[in-house]
Amino acid sequence: MALLSFALRRLAVSLPSLLLILIGVFALLQLAPGDTVDALLAQMGGGDPVQTQQLRTFYGLDAPAAVQLGRYLWRLVQFDLGFSAIYGKPVADVIAERLSVTLLLMVASLWFAAVGGVVLGIIAARKVHRWQDVVISTVGLLFYATPAFWLGLMGVVVFAIKLGWLPAGGFEEIGSGKTGLLRALDIAHHLVLPTLTLGLIFLSIYLRIMRASMLEVSTLDFVRTARAKGVPDGAIVTRHILRNALLPLVTLVGLHAGTMLGGAVVVESVFTLPGLGRLAYESVIQRDLNTLLGIVFISAVLVIAVNFVVDLLYARLDPRIRVKGH
């Protein structure tokens, strides 16, 4: 029950910011010169003025901006995200088609980054200033400094073009007719490079945080006490240090859920994955206001949800942080 009321309270706090975000994005797109009909005319290579006017009416662009925003918010209250100008169908359907790809990519990358970061961070902290630490920290720094698109393209050049081990792009093999486990394996095969590309930067951040945090916690009094009690080394690391050292990492993972949605734009473009990031980019270029607002809305909800889970995790990792305390 406490959990439910906590969730509801969090939601109530999030609603105004959600509204502000939506209005902000709407205003930003109004400030950008050109509307979706200009983008359409660019795509079709021109058209006459009467036709242009017809299309503006068709897309509901003939009303003043305030009226358009009012219409949008009113529809949103009724859980209607509107109609996509690019795809000619409801935004909810368009997003539903794309959401799973982005979620899959995000979850896979976050897992990869978090697990890899924790493991490497522990090793680096345990062997601090030894060669293992130096290697891990240097490689981590290298990945941190490399832009994702370059990493992705190099991955394609090496593993797809030169070696032929992995596909150069796409979500799955087209028209292969695979189902069940085979299809899952095929998708996994296609997602190896994108996951690594998106995950490596975060992995390098996590391993640095983890290393620093491990080193810091291991100097605290309770660790010394545990050592003095004669707790075995392995148990000190896992039960005493790790659990406490994980807290800053969990905070970061929560924050990065949003960043990852942004990073997904690049990775999805390089690997031609049909995800939300590319859809967002396309909607900006095509000035497809409804779709863009829909994506912002769904992304905001996602980030809020992830941070909610992070809050629950805090309580689990450190009983001192109580759910009620928030």
Binding site: V156, V157, A160, I161, G169, I174, S269, V270, T272
Partner: peptide, 20 residues
């Protein structure tokens, strides 16, 4: 005939080179 949407120009060149 299959048409594949590849927005990134470098990725498209890679798709040609890998025979995709």
């Amino acid at each position: 005939v299959v048409w594949r949407f590849i927005t990134d120009k470098s990725a498209a060149a890679a798709a040609l080179e890998t025979g995709q």
